[in-house]
Simulated scan of single mutants.
Amino acid sequence: MKKHYYLLSAALLLTGAAHAQGTELFFSEYNEGAHQPGLSYNGGASNSTGNEKVVEIFNPTISAVNLAPYSIRRYSNGIPLGSSLMEEERLMRRTGANVLNPQSTHVVANPEATLLDITRVANQFSAPRQNMPVSTTTSPNIVQVGGTVWFNGDDAMALVRYPSGTAGLPNVSAGIIIDIIGSIGEQPLLANGNVGGNWSGTNSADGTPAVFVLSANQSIMRRGAVSGGLRANPKPQNVPGSNPPTRNPGGYNIADQWVAYGSAFTGAGGTINAGGQLYNRLGEHLDYTGPNGVYQSTITSTLEKFNANISVYPNPTRGTATVEIKDAKVGSVVVLNNLGQRISAAAKGQGQEKLTLDISGLKAGLYFVQIMSTDGQTKIYKELVVQ
């Protein structure tokens, strides 16, 4: 039977060096609790379903920012860039103009959240979990599938901006990732090798003994000096394929940019105290010490031109693939997948060249061609199907 490959272009990613800091929205808080279903944590007003989850986006600029071009994504269980299983929904305030004022936050909560510290400040409730096709009547903000704020600590989250001015248009491939929590394409494991892990790490700035920052059962916020999003997908937290997981040198460390202020566990033995986890920093990011810049309304121009002038073919392919570069200064080309297999090719940065990639040693499957500019300021990913 003849095989047909339907190729989705991976979302574009732009490195932070390409733009001044304090000029674009970014994630400022992420909370995931260990609350038990059937118990009340809000003074008896209602029982929790165990979904006291929320993310917050901050506007560091001096401008009021229209939220229409923005969306958030959840890459659950290690799904890669370009996956049709990725969940995405637009940012849309429940009341008033869909605008985020200078030095203000936009809080997106799980629709089943019951904690008063969440519901009092939530500007938006995420869509319920659902599969395609999605009802645009009951879930008008969904771009693809649904249920972005249903994370469990081992999912990667992304903040996305669309050049068209409307999130989801003309298609999900047009979205540009401007911030990431986690490493897209990885599902971190528990220390014993089972699923259900989280993004974790320590930072010497937090003193000794080491204070772990976790994406599960903690309330975490961006460190005050962080003034822009993580725009390039980090190396995996753990060595790909290792089980039990082995920490990956230079891999993602959530504590580099995040600090914990509330936890569902207390004491050296880790006694659970779900009701004691703080959520009281939601709705503000007063710890921010970075610059307040002018909003970059033309943030995508360099990236779009760079992407348009580079093509990868044939696709699908076997044996070899060609990277054709026209009017773009390319410094490096790397083929990679979630298992850590990598093939690189050195570009000369001449603006006009063709590079041949020997992919004969790769197994059949979906790969990503990572292409970086000579100055290191722009990075894009293009999908490549190996037969």
Rank of each mutant, 00 (worst) to 15 (best):
Y6T: 09
L8Y: 11
L8Q: 06
L8T: 05
S9T: 06
A10Q: 12
L12K: 11
A20M: 02
F26L: 14
G38D: 05
G43Y: 11
N51W: 13
K53N: 06
V54M: 05
I57D: 02
P60Y: 09
S63C: 13
A68S: 14
N77I: 05
N77D: 13
I79S: 06
G82N: 07
S83Q: 04
L91T: 02
A97W: 05
P102Y: 05
V108H: 00
P111K: 05
A113P: 11
L116V: 09
F125L: 14
S126F: 10
P128L: 14
M132F: 12
P133K: 03
S135Q: 05
N141S: 15
I142Q: 12
Q144R: 14
G146E: 01
G147C: 00
W150K: 02
A158T: 09
G165Y: 01
G165S: 11
G168H: 05
P170W: 00
A174E: 11
G182K: 09
I184C: 02
G185S: 10
L189M: 13
L189R: 13
N192T: 04
G196C: 08
W199R: 10
S200I: 11
S204H: 02
S204N: 10
V211P: 00
L214Y: 04
R223D: 12
A225L: 08
V226R: 10
G229L: 02
L230A: 09
P234K: 07
P234H: 08
K235D: 13
K235I: 00
Q237A: 07
Q237M: 15
P240Y: 10
P240K: 15
N243E: 12
N243C: 13
N253R: 01
A255N: 08
A255V: 03
Y261E: 06
S263Y: 09
A264V: 04
A264T: 09
A264K: 04
F265K: 01
G267E: 05
A268Q: 09
I272D: 07
N273G: 03
G275E: 08
Y279V: 01
T289Y: 01
G290R: 03
P291G: 06
Y295D: 14
Q296L: 08
T300M: 09
T300W: 13
E304F: 01
K305G: 09
F306M: 07
I310L: 07
S311N: 05
S311C: 10
V312L: 13
T320L: 07
A321P: 07
K329S: 15
V335H: 06
N338P: 05
A346G: 04
A346K: 12
G349T: 07
Q352T: 15
G365W: 04
F368R: 14
V369G: 08
V369I: 15
K382N: 14
E383T: 14
V385A: 07
